[in-house]
Design a protein around this nucleic acid. Sequence first.
RNA 1: CGGAGUGUGGCGCAGUCCGGUAGCGCGCUUGCUUUGGGAGCAAGAUGUCGUAGGUUCGAAUCCUAUCACUCCGACCA
Length: 588
Amino acid sequence: MRASSYFISTLKEAPADADVVSQKLMLRSGMIKKLAAGIYNYMPMGLRVIKKVEQIVREEMERAGAIELLTPFVQPAELWMESGRWDKMGPEMLRIQDRHERNFILQPTSEEVLADIFRQDIHSYRQLPINFYQIQTKFRDERRPRFGVMRGREFTMKDAYSFDRDADGARQSYDAMYNAYVRIFNRLGLTFRPVEADTGSIGGERSHEFQVIAETGEDALVYCPTSDYAANMEKAECVALIATRASASQALTKTPTPGTSKCEDVATLLNISLSQTVKSIVLATEKLDQAGAVLGSQIWLLLIRGDHDLNEVKANKVAGLKNGFRFASEAEIEAAFGCKPGYLGPLGVKDVNIVADRTVANMSDFVTGANALDFHFSGVNWGRDLPEPDVVADIRNAVAGDPSPDGKGVLEIQRGIEVGHVFSGLPYPQAMGITFLGENGKPQTPLMGSYGIGITRVVAAAIEQNHDERGIIWPDAMAPFTVVIAPIGYGKSEAVRRAATDLYESLKQSNIDVLLDDRDERPGAMLADLELIGIPHRIVIGDRRLKEGEGHVEYQYRRDATPTVIKLADAVAFVRSAVDQSQHTALA
RNA sequence: CGGAGUGUGGCGCAGUCCGGUAGCGCGCUUGCUUUGGGAGCAAGAUGUCGUAGGUUCGAAUCCUAUCACUCCGACCA
C-alpha cells in the first residue's frame, strides 16, 4: 500500500475525553473515531488491525472444527422471553420496537438464537457434536461506557456455541475451544493467562477467562507461580489461614475503644495485629410467603478477618444468600444488634444468621465489636464466649501470600484485561425445551457451551500491553502493516525514490504486508506518525546512507533503540528474516 | 442510577466572574524557502459559541429549561 493513496490521519493531541492509553493512542493514530458514548467508527487503519485479529480467530476456529455462520444483529424478543433472559438481563440489553410495536433486541450475545437453530435443524445424535461460531457486532448498553473500545457499548465479538450429546463430548468441545484460544492469543503475540472463572449470571458449570496481562487491567488475577493454579479474584479459593483453632488463652474482656470503629484503628489502639481483629458485615435477605409477598427481613452477620475483604460473589453462594442479598439498612442493624454500625460483633445476638469465613472460624482470642457504642470485646473464643458459627464458608478475597488451594505454593496477584471467556453446561437447552433423538430413540437434551472473544477489546488490550511514549508497538500478527518503508526526501531524490519503490515491489512480491510512505512528509513528522501507528518493522531510505559504499539503508524494529545499517541489496532478505523471526518469537 | 464537571472552527484551549458583536496554539489552503526526528516566512479559509426560550438597546457571557459528553462511585454475559 502506498501511503499517498491510503488514509493516514493522526493527531498530535488526544481528544480530552480519552483517559486510558489504548484509547488515546487509537484516537491519535486514527484507528477509531468516537461517534457517540461507547460507540466508535473503525477507521481504515483500525479496521486493518481488526481484520487481522479476525483472520487468526477464523483460522483457529476452523482448525478446532467450528463452523461459521452469522445471526442477525436484531433479534426478536420471543426467544429471549423463552429463555427467561428478557426479564433477567435488565437495561443492559437494548430493546427496540418495530413499526408494529413488536419487541426486538440488539444482540448482546446469541445463545437463544443458536439454541433455536438447533431446535429447527438438529434432530439426531448423528449430527452431534457441532459447534457454530460467528464474528458479529454486539451491543450492550453499559451504564457507563469508558476506556474507548475496551468497554464500549457496541463492539465486535467472536462467539461460538457447541452442542454435545453427553458430558464426555461436552468436555472435549470445551477443551477444543480452550486449546484454540491458547493458540489464538499465542499467534497474536500477547502475554496472557487463562484463569478459572465464576460462571456468573450466564449460568453454567465450567468456565475460564483468558486475560491479557496489563497493569491497567480491570480484573485482578490470582495465580500460583509454582503450579498451574490461576483464577480470577471472584473465583480464587481461599483456604483457612489457620489450620487448627488454638485453645483460648485470654479472658473475654470488654475494652473501651472510643471513636475507633475501623479494624485498623482498633488494632492500633490496642496495639495488636490487624489479623487478630474480625470485621462484621451485615446483610439482609427478604423472607417471602408463598405468594411472594415480603414477610420481613432476615439479618445475616458475615465475619471476615480484619485484614481481609468480603467477596460478594462467594457470599452469593452461601445457602440462604443464593437468591440475592442486600446490605442491611442502619435501622435494621440497630434493631438486630442494639447498636450503630462500627461496633458490631457476633456476641449475644439473636435471630441473626452468622457466617464465618474459614479463617475466622479457626481464630482464637480475637477482637470484635461489643454491640455497644465505643466498646470492643477482646479475647473472644468460639464455643466459650459464643456458639460456633451457623455457617463456615469461603467468603473473602484472596490476597498475595495466601497458600495456593492446590497446596503447591503461594499465591500472587496481577492485573489483566478479559479478552476471552469459555463456558460449559449452559442452561438454555433445558429452558427452551430443546432435544435431539439419542441412539436409544429417546429425546435427550443437548449440552451447550459458549465461547467468546472480544475482537475489538483484544485490539485495545494489545495496546495496553504494548506501547511506549511514542505510540503503539503492534505484535507483528496484528499490525496494520508489517513493514513500512520510510524514504527521506522522496519527492526530491530520484535515487531514494527508486530504491524505495524497488524495495516496496520486492517485499510485496514476497507477500509481506508493506506500506510505502510516499507522502513526502518531512522526516520528523513522518517518523513520528509511523511510530505512533506502531508498524513493527521499518526501513529508512535516505540519500545519506545510499551514498555510503554500495548503498545502505537502515532497518529498525519498533522496540529497538537504534537502527541497524544494512546493504540496500540485502534489504529484502533481511526484512524477510526479521519478520519470520519476530513471528516465531511470538509463537514461542 | 447517585455525586461532580464540561459543551467556543478538525484537535487542544482562552474569553463567561464584571454583557459591547469571538481569539490563541496545532492542523488545513496558496506561494517562496527549507528537508535525517513533529520547519521558516508571507498571505488565506474555516464558528447557528450544544439546543430552545427569557432578561436587555445589546448575550459566548446573566436567568430558565433541555440535550449531549466526561470523570468518581455503584453495576457488569
